[in-house]
């Protein structure tokens, strides 16, 4: 059924451009990581982009060296503390509501206007990550809305859609969402025990099927031949606490060390993000 509240365009469905790969020489250089395995990409964080909101922040993760690979661009606004809707029951603490949405032009595939399950999923993980950082009982009977627009997803334009990279892209997106939301919350003046930041680590197989997998931080799916597993971690550095851990992939239970090293690398990535976050916040108040 057509959405009468929007301009819907032609009645017939349109097709995203199909590229003629036959005539062009193979563009894809062998997949190589442009950074050492322990290095995250450069990050740019700024608060106060939405002056009409209580707090806001903008995060951009550097475009990697490979041309055509876009970096992540996120814009976050925080509204609140505000009164809860009249229908809401009494709450002795602040009620957190998170909303993550890709812009229609954020990814290779044009996104719809309604949130899809993956976006809802991101929202839920983000809420879990932030709930552990906020001192919720300082604000009784109130709510706060955290809204993130993913202006540009972390996706490779060149790779075809069939690779199933979406899952790993979501990890990177969540890591960015957590960091940008923490900056916006601090800008809004909502009490937090610590600055929470997100970090991603992955187990990748770079040289063929039989090679030994390695753990890298801040993975870009297009830079690796195959990603076996990845985890996104929300970590509080001063408290040394993990508020949210999201693991996806395929890891044998026999090798518990692999799992721990994945988590440790995730924490390391999160610490890197935290340094940027703290630096940005310090700049804000100066």
């Amino acid at each position: 059924m057509a959405d009468r509240r929007r301009i819907n365009g032609p009645a017939g469905a349109t097709i995203p451009p199909v590229f003629d790969d036959v005539s062009t020489p193979k563009l894809k250089s062998p997949k190589t990581r442009s950074r050492p395995p322990n290095t995250t990409r450069k990050m740019y964080l700024k608060t106060g982009v939405t002056p009409s909101a209580s707090g806001s922040a903008y995060l951009e993760i550097e475009t990697s060296a490979t041309p055509g690979v876009s970096g992540l661009k996120l814009s976050c606004s925080v509204h609140g503390p505000r009164s809860l809707p009249r229908s809401a029951p009494f709450s002795p603490h602040i009620v957190l509501s998170t909303h993550v949405k890709y812009a229609p032009f954020a990814t290779k595939q044009r996104r719809g206007y309604l949130r899809d399950p993956s976006e809802r999923d991101l929202g839920i993980h983000l809420e879990a990550a932030l709930r552990g950082a906020i001192i919720a009982d300082r604000w009784p009977k109130s709510g706060v809305d955290i809204i993130i627009s993913i202006v540009e997803g972390d996706q490779d334009r060149e790779t075809s859609l069939l690779q199933g990279d979406e899952v790993w892209d979501m990890m990177n997106a969540l890591g960015g969402c957590i960091t940008v939301a923490a900056a916006a919350l601090a800008d809004a003046g909502i009490d937090c025990v610590d600055t929470v930041a997100g970090g991603v680590a992955a187990l990748v197989q770079d040289a063929g099927e039989d090679s030994i997998p390695t753990v890298v931080v801040d993975p870009i799916p297009s830079e690796h031949e195959k990603i076996l597993a990845a985890c996104c971690i929300a970590y509080l550095p001063t408290r040394d606490e993990v508020t949210n851990l999201w693991f996806r992939g395929d890891l044998p239970t026999s090798d518990i060390d692999l799992y721990t090293s994945l988590v440790e690398k995730g924490i390391q990535a999160s610490k890197n993000a935290n340094r940027v976050l703290v630096g940005c916040l310090a700049e804000t108040i100066e």
Binding site: S52, R82, K101
Partner: peptide
């Protein structure tokens, strides 16, 4: 209907 403009305000752009 070759031009399809849509405006999204509901991004928390204002309270």
């Amino acid at each position: 209907d070759l031009l399809v403009p849509n405006i999204e305000l509901a991004t928390g752009s204002a309270p």
